[in-house]
C-alpha cells in the first residue's frame, strides 16, 4: 500500500483514494516544433516509457479528494515517495540530478538554470 500526500489540498491518504497517471515529464515533440516531427519521435512520445529501477517520476490525481493532478517522485525499489510537487512544477534540484533516461535529458538545462520550480 502506498501512502500519498496531495500537494494541492494536503490530503494524506491511501493509494486507493488516488489515481496514478503514469510517467511524468514526457515532452511532446509537436509542442516545441510542430513542423518537424518524425514518426519515430511521435511513436516514442506516445508509447515508449522509461521503466527504471529506482527513481521514477510520475503523475497522480487526487481522485477522491480535490480532483487535481500533481507530480510525485517515487523509488520503484523501496516504494518510498521522495517528493510531491505541483503539476506545473519541476522536482527538487537534487532529484533532477539523479534522474535517468529521457528525464535526465529533459531536466538537463533546468538544473543548469538553477530552477527549482
Amino acid at each position: 500500500m502506498l501512502v500519498v500526500t496531495c500537494p494541492v489540498c494536503g490530503v494524506h491518504g491511501d493509494e486507493t483514494d488516488f489515481h496514478c497517471g503514469g510517467q511524468a515529464h514526457v515532452a511532446r515533440p509537436a509542442s516545441t516544433r510542430p513542423e518537424n516531427v518524425t514518426d519515430a519521435e511521435q511513436r516514442d512520445y506516445l508509447f515508449i516509457r522509461h521503466n527504471p529501477k529506482g527513481l521514477h517520476f510520475e503523475r497522480w490525481r487526487c481522485d477522491r479528494g480535490c480532483g487535481k493532478w500533481f507530480h510525485a517522485a517515487r523509488d520503484t525499489v523501496s516504494l518510498e515517495f521522495k517528493a510531491f510537487y505541483g503539476v506545473t512544477e519541476l522536482p527538487p534540484v537534487e532529484l533532477m540530478k539523479q534522474a535517468t533516461g529521457t528525464w535526465a535529458e529533459f531536466f538537463k538545462d533546468k538544473i543548469k538554470a538553477g530552477k527549482a520550480s
Binding site: 494541492v8 489540498c9 479528494g65 480535490c66 480532483g67 487535481k68
Partner: peptide, 9 residues
Amino acid sequence: TVLWLSIDQ
C-alpha cells in the same frame, strides 16, 4: 451551507 469540494469547487 457551503461545502468545500476542491480548490475551485
